[in-house]
């Protein structure tokens, strides 16, 4: 069985919104350590994954490994019935094909319960090599979203060039070209609070060409986190990570476009 109580529905809503256009259905894998998910899109170009650690829930109970097959369109519709500040309780009883979601309003005067039919999905897991990236960029997720949104008006792909001084995003299309350079920065805003900053750590300069359609899809996770981390290695897939407060993360992997 599974019983997991999440303090704010908004987290789950945002996670589902940031995956549902990439993957239509997949298993949520539940274990003692938490709830995780990994699935590729139909064309095998992008992989989406997330982890929500057990300590992010209160309480969290899962006494054996479970794979719960979820259709994201259904989950998304049901989560629209939850208020952002509602507590969400996720429940699964062994040997059933139903996942229950209970939404408790903050004043406790409204408790709604929805059941979702689970699917039997045989999933294929990929083993992702654990290697140190040649370059690791941390930047404002809002800035990253804006760049992807702006450049798709020019072309269908972006070349990301990371050097010690910063990161350059360039796109070329039939009607012209554009580029945006984000310099490495550490700024402080008017209130003396550290503002989102860009940091670049690298062993090698990296240049990757990537589909903007996919990157724009990934930016749906930006509301979850102030920052995005991009792990890049030449001629390898990009890994984008958005932290989910301090309880987990969403990661996307995107295969690069490679010249013949």
């Amino acid at each position: 069985m599974l019983e997991a109580r999440l303090p704010a529905a908004s987290i789950l809503k945002k996670i589902v919104e940031s995956i549902k256009d990439l993957v239509s259905q997949a298993n949520f894998d539940c274990s003692e350590s938490g709830i995780s998910f990994q699935a590729m899109d139909e064309s095998n170009i992008a992989l989406s994954s997330f982890l929500l650690r057990a300590d992010g829930f209160d309480p969290y109970r899962c006494d054996r490994k479970l794979s719960l097959g979820i259709r994201f369109a259904t989950l998304s519709k049901i989560l629209k019935c939850a208020g952002n500040d509602d507590v969400v309780v996720i429940r699964y009883a062994d040997d059933t094909d139903i996942l229950s979601l209970v939404f408790e309003a903050p004043d406790n005067n409204r408790i709604s319960e929805f059941d979702i039919k689970l699917l039997d999905i045989s999933s294929e897991y990929l083993s992702i090599p654990e290697q140190e990236p040649e370059c690791k960029v941390k930047m404002s997720s809002a800035e990253f979203s804006r760049i992807c949104r702006d450049l798709i008006t020019i072309g269908s792909s972006v070349v990301i060039d990371a050097t010690k001084s910063g990161v350059k995003f360039s796109s070329t299309g039939d009607d012209g070209s554009g580029s945006i350079l984000i310099k490495q920065s550490a700024s402080v805003d008017g209130d003396g609070k550290a503002a989102p900053q860009t940091t670049v750590e690298m062993s090698e300069p990296v240049s990757l060409e990537l589909s903007l359609k996919y990157l724009n899809n990934f930016t749906k996770a930006a509301p979850l986190s102030e920052y995005v981390v991009m792990n890049m290695t030449n001629d390898s897939p990009l890994m984008l990570q958005f932290d989910v407060s301090d309880i987990g993360y969403i990661r996307y992997f995107l295969a690069p476009q490679i010249k013949d």
Binding site: M40, S43, N44, I45, A46, L47, E124, Y125, L126, S127, I128, P129, S157, E209, S211, S236, P237, F253, A255, P256, Q257, I258, K259, D260
Partner: peptide, 14 residues
Amino acid sequence: KPNQSSLMSFFGKK
């Protein structure tokens, strides 16, 4: 134009 690669050429199946 560059070709879109597949993730399968980088990641193995578990």
